[in-house]
C-alpha cells in the first residue's frame, strides 16, 4: 500500500512548505516527518517523498543516503547512540560502548532480537563537557556511569 501521512502530520506538512521559497527545500524536513512515522525510509516512503516534494526519486535517495540519521533499512524501535569522539573517549567512551554491547548482547550497528534497541556510535554530539554521554531516541543522557546506562537500557526493553 502506498505510504500516507497521518492527518496530524499532513497539517505539519503544509506548515513546512510555507517556510521555504520552493518545494525542494522541504526535502529534509519531509524525510524527517516520514521517518518519524514509518521508522525508516522504505522505497514506498521515498517514492511518496519524491512526489510530495516534486523531485526525482534519485534525488531523494541521494539525500537519504548522504545523511547519517536517515535510515534506508528497518531498525529497532529505540535508537541508542554512544558518542565516541575525543572528549568522550578521554572519559571512557570505549569502555562504555563495550559495556552497552554486552548489556544488549549485540554489536554496534546491530538490533536486539526483540527489535527493541539498535545500538550505534555517534561522532561528537556537542555534549563534551558532560562526557561520556549517549543519546537515546530524542534525549541526551550525560555524565554517564555503568549504573546509569544499565537503568536506561533496561527500561528500553521492558515489554
Amino acid at each position: 500500500m502506498a505510504f500516507q501521512l497521518t492527518t496530524e502530520r499532513e497539517d505539519q506538512l503544509a506548515e513546512i512548505f510555507a517556510r521555504y521559497p520552493n518545494k525542494m527545500a522541504a526535502c529534509l524536513p519531509v524525510l524527517h516527518l516520514a521517518q518519524e512515522q514509518h521508522g525508516w525510509l522504505s522505497e514506498e516512503v521515498m517514492a511518496w517523498a519524491a512526489t510530495t516534494v516534486g523531485v526525482s526519486t534519485a534525488h531523494i535517495l541521494g539525500v537519504a543516503t548522504f545523511y547519517s540519521l536517515y535510515r534506508t533499512h528497518p531498525a529497532g524501535k529505540h535508537h541508542v547512540w554512544v558518542c565516541r569522539t575525543l572528549s568522550c573517549a578521554l572519559n571512557g567512551a570505549d569502555r562504555l560502548i563495550e559495556h552497552c554491547e554486552k548489556r544488549l548482547g549485540i554489536q554496534v550497528g546491530e538490533t536486539t532480537a526483540d527489535g527493541a534497541v539498535s545500538l550505534h556510535t555517534a561522532e561528537c554530539l556537542a555534549s563534551c563537557g558532560t562526557a561520556p554521554m549517549m543519546q537515546i531516541d530524542r534525549e541526551y543522557h550525560e555524565n554517564l556511569t555503568f549504573e546509569k546506562v544499565d537503568v536506561l537500557l533496561d527500561r528500553l526493553r521492558k515489554p
Partner: peptide, 11 residues
C-alpha cells in the same frame, strides 16, 4: 585515552 580509574567504574 581514558584515565585508569575511570569515572565509570565503581558504579
Amino acid at each position: 585515552l581514558a584515565l585508569p580509574p575511570s569515572p565509570l567504574v565503581g558504579a
